[in-house]
Write a protein that binds this DNA or RNA. Structure first.
Lengths: 115, 115
DNA sequence: GACGAATATACCTTGACAGGAATATAACCA
DNA sequence: TGGTTATATTCCTGTCAAGGTATATTCGTC
Protein backbone atom coordinates (compact mmCIF):
# COMPACT_ATOMS: atom_id res chain seq x y z
CA UNK A 1 0.00 0.00 0.00
CA UNK A 2 1.39 3.33 -1.16
CA UNK A 3 1.65 6.20 1.28
CA UNK A 4 -0.70 9.11 0.75
CA UNK A 5 2.34 11.34 0.54
CA UNK A 6 3.69 9.52 -2.44
CA UNK A 7 0.33 9.84 -4.13
CA UNK A 8 0.12 13.60 -3.88
CA UNK A 9 3.76 13.99 -4.76
CA UNK A 10 2.79 13.77 -8.41
CA UNK A 11 1.85 17.24 -9.76
CA UNK A 12 -0.78 16.02 -12.21
CA UNK A 13 -2.50 14.10 -9.46
CA UNK A 14 -2.60 17.21 -7.31
CA UNK A 15 -4.10 19.04 -10.26
CA UNK A 16 -6.76 16.37 -10.60
CA UNK A 17 -7.61 16.60 -6.92
CA UNK A 18 -7.84 20.36 -7.30
CA UNK A 19 -10.29 19.97 -10.14
CA UNK A 20 -12.48 17.59 -8.21
CA UNK A 21 -12.69 20.12 -5.43
CA UNK A 22 -15.43 22.01 -7.24
CA UNK A 23 -17.39 19.07 -8.59
CA UNK A 24 -17.24 15.54 -9.87
CA UNK A 25 -15.73 15.16 -13.33
CA UNK A 26 -15.56 12.67 -16.12
CA UNK A 27 -12.24 11.40 -17.41
CA UNK A 28 -12.75 13.38 -20.59
CA UNK A 29 -13.26 16.63 -18.75
CA UNK A 30 -10.12 16.15 -16.73
CA UNK A 31 -8.25 15.23 -19.86
CA UNK A 32 -9.26 18.47 -21.56
CA UNK A 33 -8.94 20.82 -18.61
CA UNK A 34 -5.48 19.59 -17.71
CA UNK A 35 -4.39 18.85 -21.27
CA UNK A 36 -3.23 15.39 -20.44
CA UNK A 37 -3.47 12.28 -22.55
CA UNK A 38 -6.42 10.04 -21.84
CA UNK A 39 -4.34 7.06 -20.72
CA UNK A 40 -2.40 9.27 -18.41
CA UNK A 41 -5.55 10.56 -16.77
CA UNK A 42 -6.96 7.06 -16.42
CA UNK A 43 -3.78 5.84 -14.83
CA UNK A 44 -3.60 8.66 -12.35
CA UNK A 45 -7.23 8.16 -11.48
CA UNK A 46 -6.57 4.53 -10.87
CA UNK A 47 -3.78 5.35 -8.47
CA UNK A 48 -5.95 7.92 -6.74
CA UNK A 49 -8.84 5.51 -6.47
CA UNK A 50 -6.77 2.69 -5.09
CA UNK A 51 -5.38 5.04 -2.49
CA UNK A 52 -8.87 6.18 -1.56
CA UNK A 53 -8.57 9.75 -2.74
CA UNK A 54 -11.39 9.47 -5.24
CA UNK A 55 -14.32 7.26 -6.06
CA UNK A 56 -16.19 6.83 -9.30
CA UNK A 57 -19.74 6.26 -10.30
CA UNK A 58 -20.91 5.18 -13.68
CA UNK A 59 -23.14 7.42 -15.74
CA UNK A 60 -23.86 6.04 -19.20
CA UNK A 61 -20.47 5.49 -20.82
CA UNK A 62 -18.81 7.97 -18.53
CA UNK A 63 -17.15 7.46 -15.20
CA UNK A 64 -17.66 10.37 -12.89
CA UNK A 65 -14.93 10.78 -10.34
CA UNK A 66 -15.32 12.60 -7.07
CA UNK A 67 -13.24 13.39 -4.01
CA UNK A 68 -13.06 11.39 -0.84
CA UNK A 69 -11.76 13.18 2.24
CA UNK A 70 -10.06 10.48 4.28
CA UNK A 71 -6.59 10.26 2.77
CA UNK A 72 -6.22 14.01 2.73
CA UNK A 73 -7.29 14.11 6.34
CA UNK A 74 -4.50 11.71 7.02
CA UNK A 75 -1.98 14.10 5.53
CA UNK A 76 -3.49 16.82 7.61
CA UNK A 77 -3.04 14.78 10.73
CA UNK A 78 0.59 14.18 9.99
CA UNK A 79 1.06 17.92 9.77
CA UNK A 80 -0.58 18.51 13.11
CA UNK A 81 2.53 18.28 15.35
CA UNK A 82 4.37 20.53 12.95
CA UNK A 83 1.64 23.13 13.20
CA UNK A 84 2.16 23.10 16.92
CA UNK A 85 5.85 23.48 16.27
CA UNK A 86 5.61 26.52 14.12
CA UNK A 87 3.05 28.30 16.23
CA UNK A 88 5.73 28.35 18.89
CA UNK A 89 8.14 29.96 16.52
CA UNK A 90 6.37 33.24 16.58
CA UNK A 91 8.87 35.09 14.49
CA UNK A 92 8.60 32.63 11.65
CA UNK A 93 4.88 32.80 11.99
CA UNK A 94 5.03 36.53 11.78
CA UNK A 95 7.05 36.45 8.63
CA UNK A 96 4.48 34.13 7.26
CA UNK A 97 1.50 36.26 8.17
CA UNK A 98 3.42 39.11 6.69
CA UNK A 99 3.60 37.44 3.38
CA UNK A 100 -0.08 36.70 3.54
CA UNK A 101 -0.82 40.34 4.24
CA UNK A 102 1.25 41.39 1.31
CA UNK A 103 -0.63 39.22 -1.00
CA UNK A 104 -3.91 40.43 0.29
CA UNK A 105 -3.58 44.12 0.97
CA UNK A 106 -0.64 46.06 2.35
CA UNK A 107 2.34 47.49 0.43
CA UNK A 108 4.43 45.81 3.14
CA UNK A 109 7.04 48.10 4.61
CA UNK A 110 9.99 45.91 3.72
CA UNK A 111 10.25 42.80 1.66
CA UNK A 112 11.86 39.79 3.28
CA UNK A 113 14.32 39.00 0.56
CA UNK A 114 17.15 36.67 1.37
CA UNK A 115 18.38 39.21 3.91
CA UNK B 1 13.25 23.28 -7.69
CA UNK B 2 11.68 20.21 -6.21
CA UNK B 3 8.16 20.40 -4.84
CA UNK B 4 7.79 20.14 -1.09
CA UNK B 5 5.45 17.25 -1.67
CA UNK B 6 8.10 15.21 -3.36
CA UNK B 7 10.43 15.88 -0.47
CA UNK B 8 8.13 14.54 2.21
CA UNK B 9 7.11 11.62 0.04
CA UNK B 10 10.20 9.80 1.27
CA UNK B 11 9.51 7.93 4.52
CA UNK B 12 12.97 8.35 6.00
CA UNK B 13 12.82 12.07 5.41
CA UNK B 14 9.51 12.24 7.21
CA UNK B 15 11.10 10.33 10.05
CA UNK B 16 13.94 12.83 10.18
CA UNK B 17 11.52 15.73 10.29
CA UNK B 18 9.67 13.98 13.07
CA UNK B 19 12.85 13.65 15.06
CA UNK B 20 13.73 17.29 14.64
CA UNK B 21 10.35 18.19 16.04
CA UNK B 22 11.58 17.75 19.59
CA UNK B 23 15.01 19.29 19.20
CA UNK B 24 17.94 19.85 16.93
CA UNK B 25 20.04 16.79 16.20
CA UNK B 26 23.42 15.86 14.88
CA UNK B 27 23.82 13.59 11.91
CA UNK B 28 25.12 10.86 14.17
CA UNK B 29 22.09 11.00 16.44
CA UNK B 30 19.73 10.73 13.51
CA UNK B 31 21.77 7.91 12.12
CA UNK B 32 21.47 5.94 15.35
CA UNK B 33 17.87 6.73 16.19
CA UNK B 34 16.60 5.83 12.75
CA UNK B 35 19.13 3.11 12.12
CA UNK B 36 20.14 4.49 8.79
CA UNK B 37 23.57 4.55 7.23
CA UNK B 38 25.51 7.74 7.66
CA UNK B 39 25.69 8.57 3.95
CA UNK B 40 21.98 8.01 3.66
CA UNK B 41 21.27 10.46 6.48
CA UNK B 42 23.63 13.03 5.02
CA UNK B 43 21.99 12.75 1.64
CA UNK B 44 18.49 13.12 3.00
CA UNK B 45 19.57 16.08 5.07
CA UNK B 46 21.02 17.65 2.00
CA UNK B 47 17.73 17.30 0.17
CA UNK B 48 15.84 18.65 3.14
CA UNK B 49 18.18 21.58 3.51
CA UNK B 50 18.06 22.53 -0.14
CA UNK B 51 14.29 22.44 0.02
CA UNK B 52 14.31 24.66 3.10
CA UNK B 53 12.92 22.11 5.54
CA UNK B 54 15.96 22.21 7.79
CA UNK B 55 18.96 24.33 8.52
CA UNK B 56 22.24 23.44 10.14
CA UNK B 57 24.67 25.09 12.44
CA UNK B 58 28.18 23.96 13.15
CA UNK B 59 29.19 22.91 16.62
CA UNK B 60 32.73 21.60 16.83
CA UNK B 61 32.90 18.74 14.36
CA UNK B 62 29.18 18.22 14.44
CA UNK B 63 26.47 19.70 12.30
CA UNK B 64 23.30 20.31 14.24
CA UNK B 65 20.19 20.25 12.13
CA UNK B 66 16.94 21.92 13.06
CA UNK B 67 13.51 22.41 11.57
CA UNK B 68 12.36 25.34 9.50
CA UNK B 69 8.63 25.88 9.28
CA UNK B 70 8.09 27.45 5.89
CA UNK B 71 7.94 24.47 3.52
CA UNK B 72 5.64 22.60 5.84
CA UNK B 73 3.42 25.63 6.04
CA UNK B 74 3.27 25.50 2.30
CA UNK B 75 1.95 21.97 2.40
CA UNK B 76 -0.55 23.07 4.97
CA UNK B 77 -1.75 25.84 2.71
CA UNK B 78 -2.27 23.46 -0.14
CA UNK B 79 -4.49 21.40 2.10
CA UNK B 80 -6.59 24.39 3.08
CA UNK B 81 -9.25 24.20 0.33
CA UNK B 82 -9.57 20.49 0.97
CA UNK B 83 -10.21 21.13 4.63
CA UNK B 84 -13.06 23.38 3.59
CA UNK B 85 -14.25 20.59 1.35
CA UNK B 86 -14.38 17.93 3.98
CA UNK B 87 -15.93 20.08 6.64
CA UNK B 88 -18.91 20.22 4.34
CA UNK B 89 -19.05 16.46 4.21
CA UNK B 90 -20.34 16.10 7.71
CA UNK B 91 -20.65 12.36 7.74
CA UNK B 92 -17.03 11.86 6.85
CA UNK B 93 -16.11 14.43 9.41
CA UNK B 94 -18.11 12.58 11.97
CA UNK B 95 -16.37 9.34 11.30
CA UNK B 96 -13.14 11.21 11.66
CA UNK B 97 -13.99 12.83 14.97
CA UNK B 98 -15.14 9.46 16.07
CA UNK B 99 -11.76 7.97 15.56
CA UNK B 100 -10.18 10.89 17.36
CA UNK B 101 -12.46 10.33 20.31
CA UNK B 102 -11.41 6.74 20.48
CA UNK B 103 -7.82 7.67 20.71
CA UNK B 104 -8.29 10.37 23.31
CA UNK B 105 -10.64 9.17 25.95
CA UNK B 106 -12.46 5.91 25.43
CA UNK B 107 -11.30 2.84 27.38
CA UNK B 108 -10.17 1.63 24.04
CA UNK B 109 -12.50 -1.31 23.92
CA UNK B 110 -10.87 -2.56 20.81
CA UNK B 111 -7.83 -1.31 19.09
CA UNK B 112 -8.30 -0.20 15.52
CA UNK B 113 -6.62 -3.13 13.87
CA UNK B 114 -7.33 -3.61 10.22
CA UNK B 115 -11.04 -4.11 11.06
C1' DG C 1 -24.94 -7.46 -33.75
C1' DA C 2 -21.94 -3.75 -35.94
C1' DC C 3 -20.30 0.74 -34.96
C1' DG C 4 -18.77 4.63 -32.21
C1' DA C 5 -17.77 7.01 -27.92
C1' DA C 6 -15.64 6.80 -23.34
C1' DT C 7 -12.48 4.66 -20.57
C1' DA C 8 -9.20 1.08 -19.09
C1' DT C 9 -5.15 -1.75 -19.67
C1' DA C 10 -0.66 -3.68 -21.60
C1' DC C 11 3.71 -3.03 -23.05
C1' DC C 12 7.82 -0.46 -23.64
C1' DT C 13 11.19 3.05 -22.81
C1' DT C 14 13.28 6.44 -20.10
C1' DG C 15 14.56 9.14 -16.20
C1' DA C 16 14.80 9.88 -11.32
C1' DC C 17 16.02 8.47 -7.05
C1' DA C 18 17.40 5.67 -2.98
C1' DG C 19 20.88 2.76 -1.04
C1' DG C 20 25.60 0.80 -0.53
C1' DA C 21 30.66 1.06 -0.62
C1' DA C 22 34.41 3.73 -0.99
C1' DT C 23 36.52 8.01 -0.61
C1' DA C 24 36.95 13.02 0.34
C1' DT C 25 36.71 16.94 3.43
C1' DA C 26 36.72 19.38 7.76
C1' DA C 27 37.65 20.14 12.48
C1' DC C 28 39.74 18.81 16.64
C1' DC C 29 43.72 16.85 19.30
C1' DA C 30 48.29 15.27 20.44
C1' DT D 1 52.09 17.13 11.14
C1' DG D 2 49.58 12.96 11.65
C1' DG D 3 45.64 10.72 13.49
C1' DT D 4 40.85 10.50 14.72
C1' DT D 5 36.04 11.76 14.70
C1' DA D 6 32.08 13.62 12.22
C1' DT D 7 30.08 14.52 8.02
C1' DA D 8 29.85 15.11 2.97
C1' DT D 9 30.37 13.52 -1.66
C1' DT D 10 31.10 10.34 -5.56
C1' DC D 11 30.18 6.43 -8.18
C1' DC D 12 27.58 2.51 -9.15
C1' DT D 13 23.48 -0.21 -9.37
C1' DG D 14 18.71 -1.62 -9.05
C1' DT D 15 14.05 -0.24 -8.71
C1' DC D 16 10.12 2.04 -9.76
C1' DA D 17 7.00 5.10 -11.73
C1' DA D 18 5.40 8.25 -15.56
C1' DG D 19 4.43 8.92 -20.27
C1' DG D 20 3.53 7.29 -25.01
C1' DT D 21 1.46 4.11 -28.33
C1' DA D 22 -1.36 0.62 -29.25
C1' DT D 23 -5.07 -2.27 -27.97
C1' DA D 24 -8.86 -3.99 -25.08
C1' DT D 25 -13.26 -3.31 -22.78
C1' DT D 26 -17.70 -1.40 -21.88
C1' DC D 27 -21.83 0.73 -22.95
C1' DG D 28 -25.16 2.94 -25.93
C1' DT D 29 -27.26 3.49 -30.56
C1' DC D 30 -29.02 2.11 -34.73
Amino acid sequence: MESSFAIVAEPNRRAILGLLLSSERSVGEIERKLRLSQPSVSKHLRVLREAGFVESRIEAQQRLYSLRPEPLMELDEWLEPFRRFWSKHVDALERHLDRMDDVEKAPSVKRRKKT
